[in-house]
Design a protein around this nucleic acid. Sequence first.
DNA 1: TGATTACTTGACATAGTGTCAATTGACATG
DNA 2: CATGTCAATTGACACTATGTCAAGTAATCA
Lengths: 196, 196
Amino acid sequence: MSRETSETKTRILQASLHLLELGGGKGVRMSDIAKRAGISRQAVYLHFPTRAALLVATTHYLDDLRGSEDRLAPSRAAKTGTERLDAFIEAWGSYIPEIHGIAKALMAMAETDIEAREAWSTRMQDMREGCEAAIKALVDDDVLTAEHSIEQATDILWTMLSIRTWEQLTRECGWSQALYLKKTKALARRVFIASL
Amino acid sequence: MSRETSETKTRILQASLHLLELGGGKGVRMSDIAKRAGISRQAVYLHFPTRAALLVATTHYLDDLRGSEDRLAPSRAAKTGTERLDAFIEAWGSYIPEIHGIAKALMAMAETDIEAREAWSTRMQDMREGCEAAIKALVDDDVLTAEHSIEQATDILWTMLSIRTWEQLTRECGWSQALYLKKTKALARRVFIASL
DNA sequence: TGATTACTTGACATAGTGTCAATTGACATG
DNA sequence: CATGTCAATTGACACTATGTCAAGTAATCA
């Protein structure tokens, strides 16, 4: 929306993003970000009122950079419900590693900070809409498993595709990104598609 | 193992457990615990060197209280693999709400503290063994879906039964505990059992 | 020349963990 | 009774990180 972003503001966002991506979201302090942006710690507060606000702004900055909307184009263009499900998992699942650092920081912050919690919640709600659209495409094709309502199926897909689930499978279980994508797609088909 | 737990130590653990269960793991401070145990904040450190150590000790205390081992008896006694899978989900899934508060605190601490991370990791690894046993029972009955190796099936079940997944479904999606159990069992059958 | 803007420096408040030293009260033992 | 020990108390302090405030500087614009 609002352009007119000052050069320094952008430098701060770049610094924030870089450190967050690098360190996997681990303890990135205001002073770290300031140092990398080449300004004093206090100057950061001239642009962002709190750490939470900076983290939130960083996610928006990342979205702008990576064009999160465009990623969903193939999903929306899919001909069949099954294809759409696959495409959505591919798109979101491939986006996760890129946003993981910042997501982790925001999730941690959300434990204590309301602003951060709401920002995170909104983002996840957006993602949920993608899940719902994919599920509805299955319903349109009349292939959704009978045992799930649309809402419950959406809940399940949303949970399968959560960042925490991705973390557990790739970090704790050591799955490669490719394996994660392949298995998640197969799992989703098995769970949601009736005609197997 | 080591008995000889002093009365005060026990009071601290009780206080810790109570506050953690109550507040859902939200910001329970050393001073809160001390106050509830009826001693000074500094006195807590006479019994537990760090907050992390206290949290870890609290989980062990909870296990002793609730007899986490006994819960798995029905699972181990199950006749068929499918029954075992159901019984394991029932046992662990019912345990989650009881440990959720302390688990959340420990998970949050694990982000920064090595001691906490290792303690948590060990507990989750224990749980994973239960998953593996359930999966192996399916293999023994020759009903495990062909597409999963034992290890991958274990990974998937482990993730399905993670605390994060429970949190998402019951907290974010508003599922009741009963619905969570029912759906999780159904999902596990659908994913792992071939002869459907 | 003077005002405005962006930034700097240094000091400070606050919150929470963890440490330390000096002290108190209870109880046990020679 | 004297002594020592143990558990706990109090108060002070170090440390880390966020966030605030005031005073000063340097560049730019009118």
